[in-house]
Simulated scan of single mutants.
Amino acid sequence: MYSKDNEFDQASGLRMMQQKNNVKVIAVTGGKGGVGKTNVTLNMGIAMAAQGKRVMVLDADLGLANVDVLLGLRVTKNLSHVLSGECTLDEVLVKGPNGILIAPATSGTQSMVELSPAEHAGLIRAFSSMKTPIDVLLVDTAAGISDMVLSFAKASQDILVVVCDEPTSITDAYALIKLLSNQHGVYKFKVVANMVRSLREGQELFAKLTRVTDRFLDATLELVSCIPYDNNVRLAVRKQRVVVEAYPKSPASLAFRSLASKASTWPIPEQAGGHLEFFIENLLEFGQRKNREQLSE
């Protein structure tokens, strides 16, 4: 049976990640599908890689993967092979533009959508033993508000909520924020207004969301970027490329690079907070703690 103890054990496993430097972990989510979440993840990540960061993107839409497809990457192994024990996480990583690393999921596999607690723990352990050094992990979550989406979101240091100017986008983003704040103790969210016609439209979109959250929730929202509607994004997708690479001077590309620069300045907590966080304690800290535990036994 799954319990809070299982959840704690999984969190501990995440913190075992053997990086000697802390890893910045950002979950990109949005509640509703079709808001451009994966495009935001990839363009921000590839822009951060161009700025010298070692970036990894985890395709956390475990049953309907599309990150590798959007980049035109050839994938032979994915996270399902890691879970089955056929290979390690390092062995499934695929290199993309600017050296960005992709941890691909699988598509059309129901079992990946409905992971058991033991399988979820197995995925956590895969990260704890990863040897590839990274500075930034971007978690591209699935659409909706499933337990898996909530788990990945609350396990990240920053949650980036992508919204667009559609009533259902606002409603679903609010539902996601409500669940995380009311039931999981997450109170800070960063918002990206995507595909907006102007800066003012982006600000008004953000205002629509905060009018509801300010009234009913104990949550703090910050508008961190307004990504303009740009037909070059669609053209880039058709080429299986990202817009920052295919059309580097386009309005959306400039906005994505600005977001990447801003994200690089977001602080990494020195200690794990009240909710579960990926990769907060580096190998040295973990080793010291284990030594203390062994001495006290």
Rank of each mutant, 00 (worst) to 15 (best):
K4L: 13
D5P: 07
E7Q: 11
E7T: 05
F8G: 08
A11E: 11
S12G: 10
R15W: 00
N21Y: 11
V25A: 05
T29S: 15
T29G: 10
T29I: 10
G31K: 00
G33M: 09
T38E: 02
V40C: 04
L42A: 04
N43E: 05
M48S: 02
A50P: 01
A50T: 06
K53R: 14
R54E: 07
M56Q: 01
D59S: 00
D59E: 06
L64P: 04
A65G: 08
L70Y: 09
G72K: 07
K77F: 03
V82F: 03
S84Q: 12
G85Q: 09
L89H: 00
D90W: 03
E91A: 05
V94F: 00
G99N: 00
A105C: 04
S107T: 05
T109P: 03
Q110I: 05
V113E: 02
A118P: 05
A121V: 03
A121C: 07
A121Q: 08
G122E: 02
L123K: 00
A126D: 04
F127H: 01
S128Y: 07
V136L: 07
L138V: 01
L138Y: 00
L138E: 02
D140Q: 08
A142C: 10
I145V: 14
S146W: 04
D147T: 12
F152P: 04
V161H: 10
V162H: 05
V162S: 08
T168A: 12
S169D: 08
I170A: 03
K178F: 05
N182D: 14
N182W: 08
V186F: 00
V192A: 02
N194M: 07
R200P: 06
E204T: 11
F206L: 06
L209T: 08
R211K: 15
A219L: 08
T220F: 11
E222V: 13
V224T: 14
C226I: 11
C226H: 09
P228V: 11
N231M: 13
N232K: 15
N232F: 13
V233E: 10
R234L: 15
R241S: 15
V244L: 13
E245P: 10
P251T: 12
P251M: 12
P251G: 10
A255T: 09
A255S: 14
F256T: 10
F256Y: 14
S258C: 10
A260C: 06
A263F: 05
W266M: 13
I268Y: 02
I268L: 09
P269T: 05
Q271Y: 12
G273E: 07
L276Q: 12
L283D: 15
F286L: 13
Q294D: 15
L295M: 15
S296V: 14
